[in-house]
Design a protein around this nucleic acid. Sequence first.
DNA 1: ATCATAAAAAGTGGTCAAAAGTGGTTGCAA
DNA 2: TTGCAACCACTTTTGACCACTTTTTATGAT
Lengths: 145, 145
Amino acid sequence: MLLMGEYHHQIDEKSRIRIPAKLKDALGESPVILKGTDGCLFVYSQEAMNNMFATKFANNDFTQADKTKALRLLTSSTVVTEEDKQGRILLPQNLIKHAGIVKNIVTIGAFDRVEIWSEERWNAYANLDSDGYDECLKKIASKDE
Amino acid sequence: MLLMGEYHHQIDEKSRIRIPAKLKDALGESPVILKGTDGCLFVYSQEAMNNMFATKFANNDFTQADKTKALRLLTSSTVVTEEDKQGRILLPQNLIKHAGIVKNIVTIGAFDRVEIWSEERWNAYANLDSDGYDECLKKIASKDE
DNA sequence: ATCATAAAAAGTGGTCAAAAGTGGTTGCAA
DNA sequence: TTGCAACCACTTTTGACCACTTTTTATGAT
């Protein structure tokens, strides 16, 4: 399922957010949220996450320093979401901080995952003038092979 | 059960700590604590501990000096936790010292175990202020091998 | 088309119980 | 008899739940 679209929401006083219904359907039961790149949050389905962990950390061997560090950073910044009866998710403080979320958030579909941004950061990151957008796409094209 | 998440706590004046409820559930009855790598503490469920020893020391041969020493160090530092009526665990002094714990601690889920860090050490290790995390994600993604 | 209506999704605030945090007291064992 | 660990009483905080309103989306009739 290809995830796409851009949705604007707010986090409430109790640090709860809502995943837009259209994205939520595609994510399945209890997706996971983790710190993402460029100061956003990634939301993956359980399935995608399990695959990732299973392949990367099949045998958790603490004698390998590199692997152990990656494991620690990744697992410590990941949480399994739990919806309350109103369909909202409680967002942990460390993730809120990572994403620089204050009030307004932007939720986007990003191919195989959902991303959660603070509105300010998303605007700074994505609000390109038309030239910038063209430039960005050209880079993708030239890097194809 | 995959352990994950990051929780911030404090050790009290009487050297007692609390394992966050969500991690505690997954650890089962009477988990064990031992000295971990990089100056943290490992917390394993009884079951995971047995697995760990079984895989690492499958053929425990006392003619192999290195392996024997590792085994001695690991087992000698291991204690079985006992909760008091308030759900806290008394942390032995040698473990507190090993982890450099003063007041603030960070508890993380790390795949098949829980780890307890002094906050200072965790911050230094994880390098969360800089883009250490982005680097880590990139490494994981690229290490497809 | 436009409007009416229903249904789903999203937003808001209050309440309460579990979890977490704090300090004092007691009893046992070095 | 002193230190420490287990116990007890209590406060604070947090997160899950409930009741309700508003907004959006979908659908069907005029």
